[in-house]
């Protein structure tokens, strides 16, 4: 029982509100506002497998720095992004928002999400966890790193148009 999981502290309201606000921006396709939440050195990562150590030396579903994230958002407003034409509607539910044991030093927040997507007369369900690394900047929170661990990351995936 050496590595028995320890309970994490519930994130304070301020942190929870921030995480939920981010989800709201994505749900509302307010991508520019979403991008404005990121730090200059943002890393936005969706690993392709469960125990992937990092995104540098192996394939990821998404591994964006600021430049790639900018291009990702530019595409989302392009009228000829065929895979989002028509655009998908998405609802993300974020829950279980807790602070990392070392939150005071690393700013890490853990949460779980469920997401529903509707496009082309088809509804899809996604689930997984988020890790947000928060940093205080200009009096508010910014996201320095966001890791999206999709439950089915290791499976054969169907088109993913919108960021999670």
């Amino acid at each position: 029982m050496e590595n028995a999981p320890k309970p994490r502290r519930l994130a304070p309201a301020e942190v929870q509100e921030f995480i939920l606000f981010e989800a709201q921006l994505l749900n509302e396709r307010a991508f520019e506002h979403w991008f404005a939440l990121m730090t200059e050195d943002i890393v936005y990562w969706m690993p392709a497998r469960e125990h992937q150590p990092n995104g540098r030396m192996e394939a990821s579903i998404i591994y964006d720095d600021r430049t790639l994230m900018r291009s990702r958002i530019d595409r989302l407003s392009h009228p000829k992004m065929w895979s989002q034409n028509p655009a998908a509607k998405m609802q993300r539910l974020v829950s279980n928002i807790t602070l990392d044991h070392d939150y005071e030093t690393n700013g890490m927040v853990h949460s779980a999400f469920a997401a529903f997507e509707f496009r082309n007369n088809e509804q899809r369900i996604f689930g997984g966890t988020y890790e947000h690394q928060l940093r205080r900047e200009e009096g508010g929170f910014k996201i320095a790193r966001k890791v999206v661990r999709l439950l089915n990351a290791e499976g054969v995936l169907w088109n993913l148009g919108i960021p999670f």
């Binding site: 969706m46 392709a48 995104g55 540098r56 030396m57 192996e58 394939a59 990821s60 579903i61 998404i62 591994y63 790639l68 291009s71 990702r72 595409r75 992004m81 065929w82 895979s83 995936l157 169907w158 088109n159 993913l160 148009g161 960021p163």
Partner: peptide, 18 residues
Amino acid sequence: IMRYANVHTSVASFVQTD
């Protein structure tokens, strides 16, 4: 190469999606 792969052949990439 990995960075290029992620924006080209991933199911959430800029290219493969379309």
